[in-house]
Computed example of a mutant assay.
Amino acid sequence: MTLTYDDIAEQQADIVRLLLHHIHAPLPDGRFIRGVLPSPSPAAGVRIVTGPQRDGVPDGLTAWEIPLRTVDDAEELTGAHDVLGLVRALNTGTQIFTSSRVGTVMGMTLIQVDPARVVPVGPGERDNAFTILRTLTYPWTEEQPDPRLRGFLLQGSDRMRLYADHEEDTDVVAADVRLSGALTALLAALPSLVEEVERAVPGDIGDPHCSRLIDLTDW
């Protein structure tokens, strides 16, 4: 079976679902997952953003770009648990990377990860406990919600950027939301809001992970 970008988009969404609780659960070095970004199309990858739990300053964050095509089989995608294992290993002790693999994106340090050079940290007892409890309370289903969450980025104490696609369209739309806003009303209206092209922020938004950005912080 030949992998398509639809397959990659679905895998990105699955990774988001698994890693969400790590905005509260620390990584081995005490840092937290601050975001999961869909690598710009057509790249088959995901960018995991880590940093201090309450740091919204971009230069305090690191984005780890992890390819989703496996080393052994280009037609098989890296699983969400494997991505978490790599992120844990990357956030354990001091890591050294060649300058060719280090760049910047949105003010954050961007590191291109070679999975073949990283020994993943496997799941522990708490991971397995979380898997059991999550499965019993929120059974896993292949049916994704609409809009489908492809990524997120915590940007500060009261701001988060959501990355979503809508109605089987893999084109990613980003939406900035205020965490202290009317969340129930926002979530109910989000499917229609992401379709409103007139809400798009004009000009260069400086974010390569989406095709357009809408500002819902005052919604």
Rank of each mutant, 00 (worst) to 15 (best):
S180K: 12
A89G: 11
D114R: 06
E195M: 14
F97I: 00
D114P: 01
I96Q: 13
V102R: 09
T98Y: 08
L162M: 11
P145I: 02
T217V: 13
R54M: 06
E10F: 10
A189F: 02
Y163P: 05
W64A: 00
D55R: 12
V102L: 03
G35V: 10
W64T: 00
R134Q: 15
Q53M: 12
L20I: 15
G79V: 02
T98R: 09
I48P: 06
D59K: 13
I111F: 05
P67W: 06
V121Y: 00
P40C: 00
V173F: 07
E76H: 12
P208W: 01
A44I: 00
S39R: 09
Q155T: 15
P67H: 03
G30M: 06
L190M: 13
T135A: 14
A175P: 02
Q95D: 08
R126W: 09
G35M: 08
L186Y: 07
H166M: 08
L37I: 02
D29T: 02
T135C: 06
D146S: 14
S192F: 11
V194D: 05
L68E: 09
D215S: 11
T50H: 02
Q95L: 04
E10Q: 14
S39T: 13
F130W: 15
P123F: 06
T104N: 12
E142A: 14
P139S: 07
A185C: 05
A164V: 15
P123R: 11
R199H: 08
L136R: 15
I15N: 01
G51E: 00
V16K: 04
Y5F: 15
D7N: 15
W64R: 02
I205H: 14
A175V: 13
T92D: 01
A74P: 10
P191G: 07
V197K: 13
E167P: 00
T70G: 03
L86K: 07
P28S: 05
A116Y: 04
T62I: 12
R199K: 14
H21Q: 12
G203K: 09
V121P: 02
G30K: 08
T78K: 01
R88M: 12
G107L: 07
D176C: 07
Q112L: 08
A44N: 05
Q112I: 03
